[in-house]
């Protein structure tokens, strides 16, 4: 549980830091696709008797870079890109799992599990998270500019292509860090939902990012503790908590605006 708590703290900080740029660029489905790529990476890691988290990071990075490359190639059919990478990833994962050559059960990675977080995972997660958060801080203004207007960013002299490739690796890092706890199937939600919740508050960029991190911490911690006592997979329950928090914020916002409108009418 201690290891799980440690990893969860890093997930809740890193995921929204990456997720905010994915959501604002309308790329949140990339998170979903790459989380399936991570399953292929996990199976490859297990097949080679290496760390599954590291395997996930390497293969997801390759797939992230592939998406970026295909974005240039399929300019008019960008919807095809995710289908191609999804097919490659799930195809690889299913082939390896069904070959019977894995000596470990990959289910824990599908749904997330507190018990499977090892000390080696802890170290990998720690290193990946620190490097990724530092990279986001270093590229903060470039990433904002690219997310706001990619073409204007290019004119402003930002090396958009290179930063997009680096960003693909950062997405891969966030996903690899999260798979142990959250699991492959609902990983996309951890990247997008806290950001979607923070966006409801209608604040500036910095405040939206801070609120995303706060919502993410609340979602994961609540998900982790409640799932532990209910004896269910933390990934699924965390996703449910994220949806519940989002719905609650939307409801409070709607009620607040209705009260305001009523007050204006009355006056």
């Amino acid at each position: 549980m201690q290891n799980a708590f440690f990893v969860s703290v890093f997930i809740s900080i890193l995921c929204p830091c990456i997720g905010i740029f994915l959501v604002l660029r309308k790329y949140s489905m990339i998170g979903d696709t790459l989380s399936h790529s991570s399953l292929a990476g996990i199976t490859m890691g297990l097949l080679c008797n290496q760390s599954p988290v590291l395997g996930a990071f390497v293969f997801t990075s390759v797939c992230g870079a592939l998406i970026e490359f295909l974005r240039g190639y399929f300019k008019k059919h960008t919807d095809l890109i995710l289908t191609i990478v999804f097919a490659l990833s799930v195809g690889t994962a299913i082939t390896i799992i069904s070959s019977g050559k894995l000596h470990t059960n990959a289910d824990a990675f599908m749904f997330g599990s507190i018990l499977t977080v090892t000390n080696a995972d802890k170290i990998t997660v720690f290193i990946l998270s620190i490097i990724s958060v530092l990279a986001v801080l270093l590229l903060y203004h470039q990433l904002i500019y690219i997310a706001f207007d990619e073409e204007a960013a290019q004119v402003a002299g930002i090396k958009v292509k290179m930063i997009n490739y680096i960003f693909s690796i950062l997405v891969a890092s966030a996903i690899s860090v999260s798979i142990r706890i959250v699991g492959v199937l609902v990983l996309g939600s951890m990247i997008a939902l806290p950001v979607a919740t923070a966006l409801q508050l209608g604040k500036g960029f910095r405040m939206t990012l801070i609120c995303s991190v706060l919502f993410s911490i609340a979602d994961i911690m609540l998900g982790l503790f409640i799932s532990y006592y209910l004896n269910v997979a933390p990934g699924g329950f965390t996703a449910l908590v994220s949806v519940a928090v989002l719905v609650s914020v939307i409801a409070v916002k709607k009620v607040g605006s209705a009260i305001k409108r009523a007050a204006v009418k009355a006056s």
């Binding site: 500019y145 930002i158 500036g204 910095r206």
Partner: peptide, 20 residues
Amino acid sequence: ASSSNFPITVYELLNSYRKL
């Protein structure tokens, strides 16, 4: 469509560019 949904203030937009 793209700029109206982007959570950024006028100051943040200009300040980001100033830093770049």
